[in-house]
Design a protein around this nucleic acid. Sequence first.
DNA 1: GTTTGCATGTAAACGGTTACATGATTGG
DNA 2: CCAATCATGTAACCGTTTACATGCAAAC
Lengths: 176, 176
Amino acid sequence: MDVRTICLGILTRGDATGYEIKKLVEDGGYQHFAEASFGSIYPALNGMTETGLVSVRAEAQEKRPDRKVYSITPQGRSALIATLLKPLAEDRHRSPFMFAIQFADLLPKERITQMLDAYIAHIEEEMRQLRQSKTAPKTTGESFVRDFGVTMYAAMLDYLRTHRARIETPEAQAAE
Amino acid sequence: MDVRTICLGILTRGDATGYEIKKLVEDGGYQHFAEASFGSIYPALNGMTETGLVSVRAEAQEKRPDRKVYSITPQGRSALIATLLKPLAEDRHRSPFMFAIQFADLLPKERITQMLDAYIAHIEEEMRQLRQSKTAPKTTGESFVRDFGVTMYAAMLDYLRTHRARIETPEAQAAE
DNA sequence: GTTTGCATGTAAACGGTTACATGATTGG
DNA sequence: CCAATCATGTAACCGTTTACATGCAAAC
């Protein structure tokens, strides 16, 4: 999904600033299937203001840039729904970790162990964050997606812990 | 992983043309964690030939462009290993499907059912393709990664089949 | 005292995709 | 007869990331 659609989606749940949208994408339950940076969010919001998909109201603040709070307009809502009714692009998964493991035979054993430890720790953290994410799921869809994420992370951890020996101690390979 | 690294990795398993590299990325067991198009593979291969990471030999063919068969050089192998020893970028997962499901409450019930059916069918196909992929895993790393992929697809299917009613029949939501 | 959080924005650079160009052969 | 396979390559375009610019307040 492009950044515009992500912004529209988030705004259906309530008004927000660009800054807040970024935070929601990062750890509001969107982490495991979407991404967006400031450099793409701000221009997206400005563009959509011009085309009437969102509206802004500026809240003055002392000694800080004005908060620009965005709301989705009826047109924005229609545009979002239209996008969601069109054929969806395919999922994309890119894993430098899995790529590296593919070539485990070229790397020292200690590196494999270190990569596994770091990767497992990272997934544990992502899972923890998803479980206790600030924004509690408000719709059925949200809880479905969140639980899906947690389930996948759990399956990943289970596989990695159960099978890591296969690549850490290649000698034991045949014994499985 | 960038396209150059992907090409280098594939070439450690044997010589190949740009065309063959594309096919391997698509359905040689790399599908679920890497991607590359012709428009990026050919320039990458040409660039790496210049910098000495790969070498080419042209095989003449009648009434077809010459096959340009690439081999990895010792420098290419070193460069690949160096890349794999450096800190790896984080995984990236983007799922337009999950994004859309997040907003299930905005969509007609039939659309949800249709999306689920299509998504499940797609995963079944990916899983089938990964299981019986032409290139049998030759190293421990390869079989580890392939089994990981199959396990994840299985977990996805299991979750989707078990929980789809939650978003298809929102009335039953509380009963779970 | 330094990092983190709040808050917006721009510009250059990047990596990559898509579409196009070319064209014979094989399989359904 | 049409689609897919084989085979390489270029160029325009795209969305996005990264780095930069600015700067106070609060927490550690």
